[in-house]
Simulated assay, not measured.
Amino acid sequence: KMLRSAAPLLLRAAPRFPAHFSASLRFFPLHRRCSRGSVDGKREIARRNSNRSIASSSVGMASNNSPDAAPPTHSSTVTLSSGETIQISGAPTLSPSEFRNAIDSALFKQWLKNMQGSSGILTKEQMSLKQVHIQGVDMFGRGVGFLKFKADVFDNETGKKVPGIVFSRGQSVAVLIILESGGEDYVVLTEQVRVPVGRLILELPAGMLDDDGNDIVGTAIREVEEETGISLHVADMVNLTAFLDPSTGCRIFPSPGGCDEEISLFLYRGHVKQETITALHGKEMGLRDHGELIKVHVAPYRTLWHMTVDAKALAAIALYEMAQREGLLASSSG
């Protein structure tokens, strides 16, 4: 809803693309910590991508569909907008506070909201939600970072259960930074260790939103600063996903078969001297005392589509190219 209301504004007010990138961009040294009032280091990491090393507490992922699994020891109910009451259970490995944190979390509430929204699968009464089993929780400081649960959803016509295992991590942002120098367009990438896939990945600067999910553009700007040392301005940011049809929610879902993550993709374009490109490439960033090891890469934009496996980058390329073709982007020449 927020992005739908912001989309006309973004289309009416084309971003300013400064003649000299350095006029609107500052670099920060490696040891600098982003100042965010009362938000401490752990909260900083809480917004970051799933594989970053953080101070978290992980609890068991025992599923109740295993013949050897112990019966759930936690139980609660939630009432849907239809008035139907749904049973919520928790794995025995969860503590009472973890179970309560899970069902009270913004992640779980947003998932229920999506299920019952205008395009939700429960809205047209073709599907029914019978129960939810909370299997695991990852706490980021005092808040819930990730959830894993199993939802028993049935097709009302056939009576068959549909796949319902959910890894919940909520909203994220990523930024496509294109820098023109000497007649060549370059893109700024980060190289990070990605434990879930067991390899280093070249990807766009990105990160997770806080629980309230209200400051999407601000989060995008902060992530760029933390991961690359580049400071951008709100007026220069273009929300590429705002160009999508409003019926889509103006976000992309990279893995909807198992994860609820929804991503807003932004664009920044600017002009720099070649010395800036050289200074950026190979720069080491990240909160290293928290195990966050990031190396900045700068590559020609024309080669990006076949040098990265990052779905965020590939989706951003597609949206950027189509927006250019449709004349939705202002010229970056002046």
Rank of each mutant, 00 (worst) to 15 (best):
D68A: 05
A70V: 07
A70S: 03
A70Q: 08
P72N: 05
S75E: 13
S76H: 08
V78H: 09
V78S: 04
S81W: 06
S82Q: 15
S82E: 15
S82P: 14
T85V: 12
T85Y: 04
T85I: 10
S89A: 06
T93F: 08
T93K: 08
L94A: 00
S95C: 02
E98T: 01
A102W: 13
A102R: 08
I103E: 02
I103N: 00
D104Y: 01
S105R: 06
A106F: 03
L107N: 11
F108N: 09
K109F: 01
Q110M: 05
W111H: 09
W111V: 08
N114F: 15
S118C: 14
S118W: 13
G120K: 05
I121E: 11
I121Y: 07
L122E: 02
T123K: 12
K124D: 14
K124T: 14
Q126V: 00
M127S: 06
S128E: 10
S128R: 14
S128D: 12
V132A: 03
H133D: 11
I134R: 07
I134N: 03
D138I: 11
F140E: 11
G141W: 03
G143L: 10
V144G: 13
L147N: 05
D152Q: 15
V153P: 02
D155K: 11
T158E: 08
K160A: 12
K160C: 09
V162E: 08
P163V: 00
G164P: 08
V166E: 02
S168C: 09
R169P: 04
R169C: 11
G170C: 12
G170E: 10
Q171K: 11
V173A: 05
V173G: 08
A174M: 02
V175E: 00
V175T: 14
I178W: 07
L179P: 08
S181K: 05
G182Q: 07
D185P: 06
Y186T: 10
L189E: 03
V193P: 01
R194Q: 10
R194E: 12
R194F: 12
R194A: 13
R194C: 10
P196W: 12
V197L: 13
V197W: 05
R199Y: 00
